[in-house]
Write a protein that binds this DNA or RNA. Sequence first.
DNA 1: ATAAAGTTGTTAAAATATTAACATTGTTTA
DNA 2: TAAACAATGTTAATATTTTAACAACTTTAT
Lengths: 209, 209
Amino acid sequence: MLPEKTIERLSQYRRLLLANKQKGKENIFSHEIAVQLHLTSVQVRRDIMLIGYSGTQRKGYNIDLLIEKISSILDDEKGLNSIIIGMGNLGKAISTYFYGKRNKIDIVAAFDIDIKKTGRLISGVWCYHTSDLETIIKEKQISLAILALAPEAAQDITDRIIFAGVKGILNFTSVPLNVLPNVYLENYDMVTSIEKVAYFVKENHLQNR
Amino acid sequence: MLPEKTIERLSQYRRLLLANKQKGKENIFSHEIAVQLHLTSVQVRRDIMLIGYSGTQRKGYNIDLLIEKISSILDDEKGLNSIIIGMGNLGKAISTYFYGKRNKIDIVAAFDIDIKKTGRLISGVWCYHTSDLETIIKEKQISLAILALAPEAAQDITDRIIFAGVKGILNFTSVPLNVLPNVYLENYDMVTSIEKVAYFVKENHLQNR
DNA sequence: ATAAAGTTGTTAAAATATTAACATTGTTTA
DNA sequence: TAAACAATGTTAATATTTTAACAACTTTAT
């Protein structure tokens, strides 16, 4: 299996390649990718080596073929269905952001506990009531869930969706969730991020005195 | 300087400690912290060692003192002022999320290019027009910026805020930004996160066949 | 009083991730 | 044609991060 960091970069490479393809580019050098993403060219080449793709010395990498190769690694052949739980500002932001972007990861439903939000389209996604979670997960064969709900409800909802069959969770609540070992959990915590930036700003500030 | 990963965990420790303090707890063991955050107790002890705090063998760590110690590391004495740029769903989500939470990192202003949003409070923060960026940054001595705006404008705005004095950026646009070497940049990319979850779900799925 | 249990603090080892070094290969140029 | 150049591909070295091992210390129990 490929290293986690390589997977993250592959996702970025693909979007960069798509952007360059749009501009009419057909081939790209490792150092071009590197400059655009602020990486080193070695790292780019190494990642590409790891996925078993090869470029040519004079033209670099063929953009189409490399996109295809990366997609064969990252994408599930049949595609994966995902849901957003919690349709507050964050849920809406995520939904808007993804809308129509990734065709192998479909956001097929959203959920909220507030009946003022349920029973209609929000940012392009149909919003169901939380009580329908289990039904919809099974009906639509959901394997991914994005959690953007109130912290109090997070663990309870997590238990329910895992029991219903969800295999991967992207958790935007700052609650540390308990999940079964066969469920992949990725946490993202805004507060940690901003505090980290603050720390390094402070430290850098101290250094420069 | 402390390792990046340790800084991230310190932020999490602090919030966990505050939560435990609320519950009336006065002392805590490394293994308790570890269980609650899904880490190992060794890692917790090692982090705490690195910041130069000591517990006692029978009681573990004194929660108040440890919070104080972590704060002395993470927080700037005078506090840092920050702004959110882009008051769409994501900007609002961030603003709501932070509101009244961290007292050493104040979100003192928001910005948007849409005049329907400017000149009023949104999620508790006053929203200025983007044209006021430079003025406000200097006036309020802003050192941190959270970018939640449209990708097209991202680099331009970045150049402007850095020129105006911003030293740390948390970037939620998926645009790779160019910043001066003395500016700390932290990127967060939702698409990468969800694609990563999808990949590991897929791989795990393959494994279990 | 001594042993046992349980915890911290710290060094050492292992695992993971990045960077450097360089051989190889095609292309251009003298 | 051969040398110089510029790129890839890959192994080796380095750096970072996590995990393991264990000494030292308190408290409790016998």
